[in-house]
Amino acid sequence: MRRHKEKGGSPNKKRKSGTARDSRAESEEFLKKNRSKADVIETASGLQYSIVDPGEGASPTEWSTVEVNQRILLVDGTVIKDTFRTPDRDRFTMEEAIPGLKEGLPMMKEGGRFRFVVPPDLAWGKRGAGNKIGPNAALVFDIRLERVND
């Protein structure tokens, strides 16, 4: 007698229904551990950062366009983007930035490098972004502010 395969795939595969809840728990655990590091500063909004290199140039305002090199990671270490390995920088207006970067980038000066840990509510929140960033995902940004254009 042949058995029919159940719809929905292998029972060993992780089901997507718990993904948002699991991601929220994983993000909260990562933020809690990161908060306890000696060099980490946390703002009132929950944005966490550490200063790798303070830089010496101009700081962006809410109306600036910035050029950055950045490595964006999920809290499990998955690399979403890494412009440090390419000849191209990312360029965007502060208005286009996610809330965590709108808050964090003005603390930086040109030439500076910070590590931001952005909680889900200051990133893409419940909706996520495409197929790379799931719902309720905290993100880690290793970011160098290359240039500020006003």
Rank of each mutant, 00 (worst) to 15 (best):
V148Q: 08
T78E: 14
D150C: 12
A58K: 11
K7G: 12
E110G: 06
L145E: 03
E110I: 00
K37M: 06
I51E: 07
E95W: 01
K5C: 13
Y49W: 07
G18Q: 13
D39M: 07
S10H: 13
V66I: 15
V52I: 14
I72F: 00
K7F: 14
T43A: 03
V140K: 13
M94N: 05
R35Y: 08
V75Y: 05
P120S: 09
K37L: 13
H4L: 15
G57Q: 07
R71L: 09
R127Q: 12
S64L: 06
L74Y: 01
E28S: 11
E103S: 05
K37F: 01
V68L: 09
M108Y: 04
S45F: 00
E29F: 05
R85A: 12
I133C: 08
G9S: 10
G9L: 10
I143V: 15
G111K: 01
R113F: 00
E110D: 07
V75I: 15
P87E: 10
P11A: 14
L74T: 10
R2G: 11
V117I: 13
D76Y: 06
T61W: 05
V148N: 04
K5Y: 15
E146H: 00
A25E: 13
W124R: 08
L31G: 03
K5G: 12
P99V: 01
E62V: 04
P87V: 03
S10N: 15
D142W: 00
